[in-house]
Design a protein around this nucleic acid. Sequence first.
DNA 1: CATAGTTGTCATCTC
DNA 2: ACGAGATGACAACTA
Length: 692
Amino acid sequence: MKYLKPWWSDGGSLLHLTILLSLAGLRLDLDLYLLLPPRTLLGDELLLSGGPTSPAYALSPFPASGGWRRAELLHPKGRERDPVAPPESQLLREVRALGVPFIPCTRVDAWLVHSVAAGDADGAHALLGAAAAASSAGGVGAGVNGVSQAAPGSGGNPRAAPSSPLAAGEEEKAPAEPTAQVSDAGGHASEENEVLRAVDHSSQHEENEQRASTQREKSLQQKNEENKVADKPAWEAEKTSEPRNEIHRNGTDTVFSLEDLFQLLSSQPENPLEGISLGDSPLPGSINDGMNSPTHYNGNYSQAVSHDVNLHEAMLLCPDNTFRRDPLARTSQPQELFLQLNSPLTNPEQTLSGTNLTGFLPFDNQVRDLTNQDLLYDLDVNIFDEINLMSLATEEGFDPMEISQLFEEPDSDSGLSLNSSHNSTSVTKSNSSHSICEGASLSSSESLSHRDLEGAVGGYYPEPTKLCHMDHRSDSHFHGDFAFQPVLHNHTYHLQPSALESTYESFSWPGKSQKIRRGYLNDTDRNLSRDERRAKALHIPFSVDEIVQMPVDSFNSMLSRYYLTDFQVSLIRDIRRRGKNKVAAQNCRRRKLDVILNLEDDVCNLQAKKETLKRERSQCHKAINIMKQKLHDLYHDVFSRLRDDEGRPVNPNQYALQCSRDGSVLIVPKELVTPGQKKENQKGKRKSERRN
DNA sequence: CATAGTTGTCATCTC
DNA sequence: ACGAGATGACAACTA
């Protein structure tokens, strides 16, 4: 697993690089935070998110001293956030729910590197280095500047401290905050750590913190000693023989507390970059070691970052751990790579040597919170492309400079539209893409419809990379036209891990059980339909519903209007076809059911009618029988009154009554009555009866 | 575990 | 000829 992505805090001033390492079973989270000038802080709270396996932290400025005084473990599960809601917003809510007093930190100008090793019980947090820089045109606002009680040696104005932050490192390490219980557990903080202790500014608290810090330092040193003798991965063991000038290495076997970091933050002078050096840093021992030695932080963070990225490569691409970086190359490109990673500014001094990072991020107001989990989902695929390029280009002979050049090329043929040269804010180019584009997406949110932003498959926002793909056409286009065009992405998307996963499950397991496939899906994807996952995998910026329900004309125009790969077009058409067919099948079944129901109704109606007819027939039969009986009775009554010439009764068995046409009634022997005559007699009877 | 119902999908047909 | 809809058949899933 690897990712490298900037992360913007709620205030938009916290640039976050998160690099997750997983090498030889050791999982290392390297979180690089860049705290930006005050004006970039839109919010009053500043949070540091932990890595995917590490808890989240909150930074609270110490108003009395003007420095960072607290590193709070917010919640061990702080990263388990609503994947939809802005992660840090939820973090803020958690913080508020916990009642942690957050002090507005609007005067922060510092940057720090926080390396957290986590992932197993032995994981160690490493505080690699930090420095606070002044803001407000190089100065520090009243919120965080001033004498930091944590760094009493820094004097009344830590910003007035030596230009090198290491000068502060020479000073006695500030007493640690006892509330900072974040590091020594390797991210596995105890439950009691979930509840943050409120910021305590009392001197008694300071003393307690100092004592706790001292004890912790001792324990850390002891632990580091143990770690040194412990078995290490081959890559790490090999590095152990190298000069200990690499953040990541330090991060793996060093335990630091965040409060140490904040002590450092509070005590560091203006230019953190100058002071921060990891070269020959005895970080494994304690941050104090590094602080006490001006040379301990002579390295640079960029190196650390690049190193971590390289480690990713080593892990992902060289599982046998045969991948080794050239330490010389590693050390020979100190801050250049940092520039490449952290800013494409053409003027390195503007970003590094200058203490004021204001303007470092022109889109500082265009922020979007991303958690590390988001990184897993939303990681700019360019990162992987870049890293893949790195790996392809380097193999055994990894050259960071070459890689950095890859990052530098905005119009690389690698398909990466890094666009870093067009923007002054980026960490890596891919990161810059994310940063800028995310910011742009937010800044353009008013112009963008929700449909565009949220209607996409899987609730994805338009991929920032896509925006940047568009961006490299022209900045004006990016800043201007973007707001008026719902989607101006380059939809030549690349697959990212989740995408690859989804794609794999979508296209490689056509006959597999969905249960099996879903086993590879996360909770979010699990709720998505297959097409939604597919669309998500290919970063198709249209929702499945849109694709399916869109009118034909709109659909065709959409396909022609946007630059889509054949794969995407094919998928979109398949999605539409399947969606249409699904609806058609549903309608068909509905109609079939309707037909069945109608037929059933007809059957019922016919059966009822049949019963009615049966009853009518029965009634008719009864009436007929009654009539017959009456006729029979009348017949015999008539014969009983008839007499022959001799006055004897007439036998009705021998004679029959016959009506003539003139109405007269004759008594005729039955043998003389022909059938025809009988009928005529019957007719005559009727006529006579009518006459009568 | 068996079974029936539901749903999605594909192939094919019809309009 | 082409596309959209309709429908039978099948498989996967679910209760």
